[in-house]
Amino acid sequence: MASILDTVNQRTQLVGQNRLELLLFRLNGRQTYGINVFKVREVLQCPKLTTLPHQKGVICGVAHIRGQTISVIDLSAAIGGKAVTDTSNSFIIITEYNRTIQGFLVGGVERIVNLNWENVLPPPSGSGQSNYLTAVTELNDKLIEILDVEKILHEIVPSKMDISDEIAATLKPTAPSKRMVMVADDSAVARKQIQRALVPLGLDIVLAKDGFDALNQLKEIASGCNDIAEKMSLIISDIEMPEMDGYTLAAEIRANPQLQSLKIVLHTSLSGVFNQAMVNKVGADEFIAKFNPDELAATVNRYLAETCEG
């Protein structure tokens, strides 16, 4: 128990400091990729895989690990690269995204590095709709590419984006002045999912591509008024974002007198025992794991109703 608490304390020290830890890995070539350590459950030599009938092309089989059956995705093939033909020298990164466990087949695993989100930048403009990058950074004169895993998973198994009829029936209209909500997420797929889920609420949704962009837009919206709550009620923010992460964004909002009344919902594919401690530390109001449209719409509706009543 003591070691677990020590780990929690170490992780929470990164909160509000705009830092992250990346596990570096390779696919078929020399290019290095990174994945947030918080999303990694385990890394192991690729075990024997079981092929399933009618499985999708990028799913190379299932692995039986510690009593659990896990789908294994050929990450190189999933982003349009060369498929792995020999898994004997490959590795599997077991991850948890969007409430699901999956394995990513990779060519090799290098090390864990600690970085500042300020040094993690959005992909170059003009890279096109087909690219699978959500961010890039440089380490020892080498480019590190961070993949948009949410986009990859959505293409393999599309997420449900519409809310259920049961939840739709419980949604209540809000005052027109309280209908502005911001969505901050570096994944275009995630932004689209959130927008789709919130359509029944009739909201004026402002989009931001990362925490830095969100903070600048919030300051602009709040200019000319004493309290941003006069114009906006809520922000839904991802945690992993280039330049400024969601934890740091939340801390910045709470430290700004014009913005501090804004309700903050952290909405992320990150999972684990550390989240609530981090949410409390930065002053966010709630944490919701991606992606459940019913839960998200109901939560936003509740906060909007509370704001109107206030």
Rank of each mutant, 00 (worst) to 15 (best):
215 L>M: 13
183 V>K: 00
167 I>R: 08
154 H>P: 04
133 L>T: 10
194 I>M: 10
221 I>K: 07
234 L>E: 08
143 L>H: 04
188 A>Y: 03
152 I>D: 01
155 E>N: 14
203 L>H: 04
230 E>G: 06
208 A>Q: 03
224 G>R: 11
221 I>W: 08
189 V>C: 10
227 D>A: 12
215 L>C: 07
155 E>C: 11
138 E>F: 13
202 G>R: 10
173 P>R: 06
174 T>V: 14
225 C>S: 14
138 E>H: 13
222 A>V: 05
201 L>N: 06
215 L>S: 06
157 V>T: 13
201 L>R: 05
240 E>K: 03
196 R>F: 09
185 D>A: 14
173 P>H: 06
213 D>C: 09
149 V>G: 02
232 M>I: 05
203 L>Y: 07
149 V>W: 00
189 V>A: 08
148 D>I: 09
207 L>N: 05
196 R>A: 00
146 I>Y: 09
200 P>L: 06
139 L>S: 10
238 D>V: 06
223 S>P: 02
157 V>P: 00
214 A>W: 04
214 A>M: 08
187 S>W: 04
168 A>K: 10
164 S>A: 10
166 E>R: 12
155 E>A: 14
147 L>H: 09
199 V>S: 01
221 I>V: 14
146 I>N: 02
163 I>S: 05
171 L>S: 07
170 T>Y: 08
233 S>L: 11
184 A>D: 09
232 M>D: 03
190 A>P: 00
183 V>M: 05
204 D>M: 12
224 G>N: 10
218 L>C: 03
158 P>M: 09
198 L>I: 10
208 A>L: 02
136 V>Y: 07
238 D>A: 05
214 A>R: 01
172 K>D: 05
164 S>L: 00
150 E>K: 01
158 P>V: 11
232 M>H: 04
235 I>V: 13
165 D>F: 02
196 R>E: 03
215 L>H: 07
240 E>M: 07
233 S>W: 00
235 I>W: 06
163 I>K: 00
158 P>I: 12
145 E>Q: 15
137 T>Q: 09
142 K>E: 15
216 N>A: 07
191 R>Y: 01
203 L>C: 02
197 A>S: 15
148 D>A: 10
208 A>M: 05
165 D>G: 11
199 V>A: 07
206 V>I: 13
149 V>C: 06
133 L>H: 00
178 K>D: 15
149 V>H: 10
218 L>N: 02
219 K>W: 00
227 D>T: 10
169 A>S: 15
158 P>Q: 11
231 K>L: 08
209 K>I: 04
153 L>S: 06
160 K>T: 15
233 S>V: 15
189 V>R: 03
180 M>K: 14
189 V>S: 04
159 S>R: 12
219 K>V: 01
193 Q>A: 10
161 M>A: 13
198 L>H: 03
173 P>D: 10
200 P>C: 09
186 D>F: 03
144 I>D: 06
233 S>N: 11
176 P>W: 14
221 I>R: 01
137 T>W: 00
205 I>R: 02
146 I>T: 02
200 P>H: 03
199 V>E: 11
164 S>Q: 09
176 P>H: 12
153 L>W: 04
188 A>G: 07
239 I>L: 10
177 S>T: 13
183 V>P: 06
